[in-house]
């Protein structure tokens, strides 16, 4: 009778319920068939239970992604909550997979679930990490490109939270532009 189960402990609720998605590229299948919803969570405790259970991003094989989005938003440009938005993009060198990738991704997750962007946190849709042989990427997605004040505030806070040098520059790209160009050619709408 003295045993306390996790169900009896008051967990710390998050502002939003979040969904973890996993993508593994199987070229013979349509893109959407390769994307799976893993689970959702809405407490601090359940976030850590999930985080400690899944593979670190640096251990995933190439052409896999994790996405974490507010529940109900699919991790794709076409979703109505994403299509007018864009992303702050962090591009990493091959060497950074072993030195920085997991730390930067965890920091990104903590920014999201902790609502780190103050009154602009509602603008955040989610984040994506792409594991790629040519260099990994992390992106923070927001819902409306035209909300300049919100987008730049989020970018400044995000850059600071990632511990990037003040000399480093990160760019924000509209999904509408990324969808029509290869990402290496997409122009930055904002930089911080």
């Amino acid at each position: 009778k003295d045993v306390v189960t996790t169900e009896n402990v008051d967990k710390h609720p998050l502002q939003s319920r979040w969904a973890l998605w996993f993508f593994k590229n199987v070229r013979s299948q349509p893109w959407q068939c390769n994307l799976r919803l893993v689970t959702t969570f809405n407490t601090v405790e359940d976030f850590w239970a999930l985080y400690t259970h899944v593979q670190l991003a640096s251990k995933l094989s190439s052409e896999c992604d994790y996405s974490i989005f507010k529940d109900g938003i699919e991790p794709m440009w076409e979703d109505s909550r994403n299509k007018r938005g864009g992303r702050w993009l962090i591009t990493l060198s091959k060497q950074q997979r072993h030195s920085d990738l997991d730390t930067l991704w965890l920091e990104t997750l903590l920014c999201l679930i902790g609502e780190a962007f103050d009154e602009y946190s509602e603008e955040v849709c989610g984040a994506v990490i792409n594991i790629r042989a040519k260099g990994d990427k992390i992106a923070l997605w927001t819902r409306e490109t035209e909300n300049r004040e919100a987008v730049t505030y989020i970018g400044r806070v995000y850059k600071e939270r990632l511990g990037l040098s003040s000399k480093a520059v990160i760019g924000y790209q509209a999904h509408a532009d990324t969808a029509t160009k290869s990402s290496s050619l997409t122009k930055n709408k904002f930089v911080v």
Binding site: H12, F47, Y51, T52, L110, G114, A116, R161
Partner: peptide, 20 residues
């Protein structure tokens, strides 16, 4: 009431949960 948590608070739960 908005539920926001700073990174130190969130990190504090990492090992509590892991040890459960």
């Amino acid at each position: 009431d908005k539920k926001s948590y700073d990174r130190e608070f969130l990190l504090g739960f990492q090992f509590i949960v892991a040890s459960m």
